[in-house]
Nucleic acid binder design. Structure first.
Lengths: 236, 236
DNA sequence: TCAATTACTACACGGCGTTCAGTAACAGCA
DNA sequence: TGCTGTTACTGAACGCCGTGTAGTAATTGA
């Protein structure tokens, strides 16, 4: 039962985000300017303040949307591989992450870099939710590998007190049987998937390395070893 | 034999960089504005164009300086540990990298993130040299561990043609006996050290994880396992 | 039909990088 | 010493930017 006004309003809000996204993919995160968006919409910059209280609010909305899309991709990649194949799942999620990142470098920057000059991330919100979803995928992968992975850990003396209470509570709700050391491992997995991709997106691998994808794949395979889920036969 | 003019000029150039650096540490990379620098120096913004052709040129100079300082720190950390202790060297360099990064987050951002809106890294220059130096430290660590590490690789079918010719030539000059697969491994080591640190600096680990340093240390220890240089006794 | 809400414009403020004509101080040379 | 070319800088301008604020036109609900 949205009134005509609400509908128009929602459409305008969407259009603003869409234009902002396009501007960003064309000219990088810094190309997101209220004036440019308004120009494309045939409006004045001030009019946008009826939709977003400030430019950072708009950026927040974008971040939430993008991060959510990334989480979707990771979940889809995971679910495309059978539960019986934990190694395949890790590789799939990892590759999906990199593929998305190198295909959408500006969006990667917006999420994982300093989005904009002086920007400060808000406390809660949809962005935090999406970040948690993406992180939960990795935690799930670790959970599946935990029986094997736990034996290889060099530091398993973790406690739930080593994490933020709220964060710990959410995790324990989703994975009741998972010990805190597994969560720590999941964070490390996150970092490991993030490292090479960040270097590549920010142009530190190319052009020295001709095929970063291969490098990344080797890293993922090594990661499966850390998790203890590499089968006897190895991928080429 | 620098003339009075040259001396004053060099001093002014240094002062500009120093003020820019301070502004950045106080207000983030975006606080580097020609007008603010000029204001502090009692000059006009236009006057700075006699020293740097554009703001990005100034930022380049900063990047080169910062990157070089980082490379110094890494080299010092490596040389503080005996050559007989490859694991200790890896840990030292890794810890030095993280310590520097979390202690100088803005500088880390400037080097490894998108330094400024619309900034484009130049081809050669001092920044590239410093990046190479920092990378060479890691390559050296891998070189020392190569006898053990090579046995654990899942993909050793690397060729020098997999790298940029100039890059490959420089590496082969420094490490004549090192095979290309080792260089690939060094890149992966770089990515591995980079990942968790980048996440932490950009605020993705805190406050969920209370002690990112511990997480990072575990990752480094795991890295030494990948390199095959973990001694029998493990660090706590 | 009328009052209230909404969406928007127009304008202003201060900030930014960058350019450019003009000016004052300096350097080397006679 | 005086002259000349070079250098370092100013001041004003241009066109961007985010952000407020006062006013106006349209739409809404009663």
């Amino acid at each position: 039962m949205p009134s005509r006004r609400e509908r128009l309003r929602a459409e305008a809000s969407q259009e603003i985000k869409a234009i902002a996204l396009r501007l960003m993919t064309e000219g990088g995160p810094s190309a997101i300017s209220l004036r440019a968006i308004a120009r494309e919409m045939g409006m004045t910059a001030g009019a946008l303040y009826g939709y977003y209280a400030t430019r950072d609010d708009l950026v927040n909305a974008l971040i939430a949307e993008i991060y959510s899309a990334l989480a979707d991709k990771e979940e889809a990649a995971r679910d495309a591989v059978s539960e019986d194949d934990p190694e395949g799942r890790v590789l799939a999620v990892g590759e999906a992450f990199r593929t998305w990142a190198v295909g959408h470098p500006e969006e990667f920057q917006l999420i994982y870099g300093d989005p904009l000059p002086g920007y400060q991330a808000p406390e809660g919100g949809a962005a935090a939710d999406a970040e948690h979803r993406a992180c939960a995928v990795l935690t799930g992968l670790v959970a599946d590998a935990w029986p094997q992975a736990s034996k290889r850990l060099s530091d398993d003396g973790y406690d739930w007190a080593d994490f933020d209470p709220g964060f710990a509570a959410v995790i324990r709700g989703e994975f009741p049987d998972l010990p805190p050391a597994a969560v720590a491992l999941a964070m490390r997995v996150w970092g490991r998937m993030h490292g090479l991709v960040a270097l590549e997106v920010y142009g530190h691998l190319r052009p020295q390395v001709l095929d970063p994808a291969r490098l990344y794949r080797a890293e993922l395979l090594d990661l499966t070893k850390t998790l203890g889920i590499t089968p006897a036969g190895r991928a080429r």
